[in-house]
Design a protein around this nucleic acid. Sequence first.
DNA 1: GTTGCATTTGGAATCGATTCCAAAATTGGT
DNA 2: ACCAATTTTGGAATCGATTCCAAATGCAAC
Lengths: 332, 332
Amino acid sequence: MARATVQDVAKTAGVSVGTVSRVLNKSPAVSESSKEKVTAAIRQLNYRPLASARDLRRDRTMRILALAKNLNSPVISEAFRGVGDAAASSGYVSLIAPTAGDLEREQQLVDMLRNGSVDGLIMFSPTMPDEDVNEMAEQLSVVQVCEIADSEAAFGVSIDDRQAAFDITRHLIETGGRRLAMIGNRAARSGRLREEGFRQAAAEAGMSPDQMLFVEGEFDFHSGRQLTRKLLTADPLPDAVFCGSDTVAAGCVREITDAGLRVPDDIAVAGFDDSIQAEMCVPELTTIRQPAYDMGRVAFEALFARMTEPGEHRRGRTFLPHELVVRDSTKG
Amino acid sequence: MARATVQDVAKTAGVSVGTVSRVLNKSPAVSESSKEKVTAAIRQLNYRPLASARDLRRDRTMRILALAKNLNSPVISEAFRGVGDAAASSGYVSLIAPTAGDLEREQQLVDMLRNGSVDGLIMFSPTMPDEDVNEMAEQLSVVQVCEIADSEAAFGVSIDDRQAAFDITRHLIETGGRRLAMIGNRAARSGRLREEGFRQAAAEAGMSPDQMLFVEGEFDFHSGRQLTRKLLTADPLPDAVFCGSDTVAAGCVREITDAGLRVPDDIAVAGFDDSIQAEMCVPELTTIRQPAYDMGRVAFEALFARMTEPGEHRRGRTFLPHELVVRDSTKG
DNA sequence: GTTGCATTTGGAATCGATTCCAAAATTGGT
DNA sequence: ACCAATTTTGGAATCGATTCCAAATGCAAC
């Protein structure tokens, strides 16, 4: 049995296609009796309006797409919940696709915006170079979350990464940290900003750059362990480590503990994100809470504005407040 | 500047729309010179074929959608990688949407298949009742992963949950477990199968049902802690706990440790999934490895078959092999 | 230069839902 | 019963890409 069309429904209901369409779109200009006939025919034929035909005619899809490198990041999945809820309450469907850091796949997904498969795009962690992101941001309905490219045209939502890193580093210093280390990631803009905040806090406390250790790598548990192993060869040992994510911090704590040292007594460790990992770790991690869900909501609102007022270029990046969460991995 | 259409390209290139379309679709029946003119015009106008028009005419979208309750489950995100890679190599784009366990939202997303927004659907953890899943599975291109509804018409890929639970429970018994407990989840079919396997292994070892503790709840860390607290009020205490997921097991280990008991000496703990949580836990968890990536690949292959040979109803469920991974949370 | 065959091209019809306009039906007032 | 105002309806045009068919062009051989 082939798919029923609006024509079939019209014939079955004994009305015209116009009337069927009016019923579908809840136009008030339909008599009660036609509405009933049409509704009955729709049910009888199990009819659903074909999306591509509707989208073609209406010139919009009521769908948006979010892109991220991975899905298993707690911040991203939480932010996406925010996007999804905000989108739903505006009648949009929100979809996600992981790029896996593959440029070609990312390009293909971005093309879904260019070719009208979706009305808007939310980018969490772009793989493409900043200049390409900026070019896109100028012409298309795109909003960045967490990572915001450094451009006039960039629309985006994030926390103030530099300030957050500054705050937590200051906490490490105030609780006795004298030989600081950081496990970071210069590949991401947010990673570079966090490094800046870290260095600035250390400098203000009178530490010279060569007193600070810095190592970088991927942001997963194993990488956290491996990079910490490198830190533990330093002499003198660091007494406080700021990690760019909770997962890395968990690896860091594990490696320190396995080496027979105590956290925080011998070495204090701080994370970032306040994900569930921070609570699963022993000792529980001092970290920075990102308001991920709200970031998602706000990002959708910004995207909605771009989609519905295309001329309007009230660009802007929004910074939401972060929060220092002190737990047992630093001296309290 | 409005969007360029195939007409605009034809005019600019000085050819007909037919020729433009042939170039776009790499038809061989185009002269070299036309091809160049068209390619130049496309670049000049920055033209992209409109997806909805193409989809309408072709009656397919080359897109598939995967639905899951949450995105942050390690098994799901890994399985989705498999889906994505397999889909990409067949020219499909794969998208994900979380349902958050909300029936209405799930319904709306499933409608994307019914209304032709996507060509196929992969369901990880349905919220709708089994009978609805079965009805869908009969008429539409749907493949289930992990959770497979119990129906003739069901297409799906998973491990043998019952057998896996049986295997790991036997391991608990072989390593000295005498008073077994399980933290499970009867809401999911896979949860019920795991409970069956658990009970069967215990029964075969001569344990009576009332010797076994069973508690159930959500599958997250906090729930794992809370349910374990309940188990620790039992007298005598269990000496081996099988948890339905690594995350729950991590909560279980934490609660046991906080109570001053040792894992595995006082109580052995086993998880499920072999996610990164299993390695992050101290002690590292004995668990069941699910071949999540491969499950995703196989699921796409099955879906591809359903999409391309709609008549063909060689239904079937595929079970991929699981693996017992022994680590320090059980006695070796 | 003509014939025959293969290659290339133009253009109309098509996919299915929406929307606009004019025509038809209904309503109400007198 | 008639007119005007309003509500409701039918049907054609439209969105943009694809595809089919017929026409046109190119090429080779004689």
